[in-house]
């Protein structure tokens, strides 16, 4: 009889191993050579324990270029449905979009992100949601480094006693500042698109101040 304390390591699936190899590659120091995956999730709520992801949208940016056909849009099958979020997300349970299982969604997501830097607005939330899903599927957490436009945006603004700094910038604030249309707001891919354009704008502004490397960007990614 096997002792319950003597856990044999679970064999991880092949796609995880592939991802692990990819993700452990060293990132180039220059911004231009890195790829950034801008990502957003729509969820049933804000609880990491109770709530589930409804959809994931992601785009890849490389050297200021975003390819439309190289995007990821995943809708996840739900066991449970929380009516409180129907309105805001506009995703019905019987959505005509083809839904995938959480496991399949994670497989596709990992294959998509590889060793890219993950960018999002309040990335911490999205990454935690994904990590919870990974855990439910018996997989380890994401290995990618991440950047948050909510943290980077204030760094791109000028410091002036005349300017009242807000302590919190929503994605709507960013869309307003960078003149991005709010079409498709509150869909995962739509929000990812807004975040991506805003991210490019922020980098542009920051680059005016200093010669930006990937590392200096990570240093700015704090409160």
């Amino acid at each position: 009889m096997r002792s319950p304390f003597n856990k044999t390591p679970v064999e991880l699936p092949g796609f995880w191993k592939e991802y692990e190899i990819e993700a452990s590659k060293k990132l180039p120091p220059e911004l231009e050579s890195n790829s950034f995956v801008v990502l957003d999730t729509e969820t049933t709520g804000f609880s990491f324990q109770r709530d589930r992801m409804l959809s994931i949208g992601a785009l890849t940016l490389k050297n200021g270029v975003m390819e439309v056909n190289n995007s990821l849009e995943l809708y996840l099958k739900q066991e449970r449905f929380d009516h409180s979020t129907v309105k805001i997300h506009g995703l019905l349970k019987k959505e005509t979009k083809t839904c995938v299982t959480e496991y399949e969604a994670m497989r596709q997501l990992l294959a998509y992100v590889k060793n890219s830097v993950i960018v999002g607005h309040h990335t911490h939330f999205d990454i935690s949601m994904i990590n919870k899903a990974l855990k439910r599927q018996g997989l380890p957490e994401l290995l990618n480094r991440s950047l948050d436009t909510a943290l980077l945006y204030p760094k791109s603004l000028i410091k002036s006693p005349l300017r009242s700094q807000k302590d919190h910038y929503t994605l709507d604030d960013l869309a307003e500042a960078f003149d991005i249309s709010l079409k498709d707001r509150h869909t995962a891919l739509g929000d990812a698109y807004i975040t991506a354009i805003a991210f490019l704008g922020i980098i542009g502004r920051l680059q005016k101040k200093e010669n930006l490397s990937l590392n200096s960007l990570f240093k700015l990614n704090t409160i």
């Binding site: 270029v65 975003m66 390819e67 439309v68 056909n69 354009i197 704008g201 542009g204 680059q207």
Partner: peptide, 11 residues
Amino acid sequence: LSEEVSIIYKE
């Protein structure tokens, strides 16, 4: 056609 488009940001 739109699916094949790349979106480019230029400073």
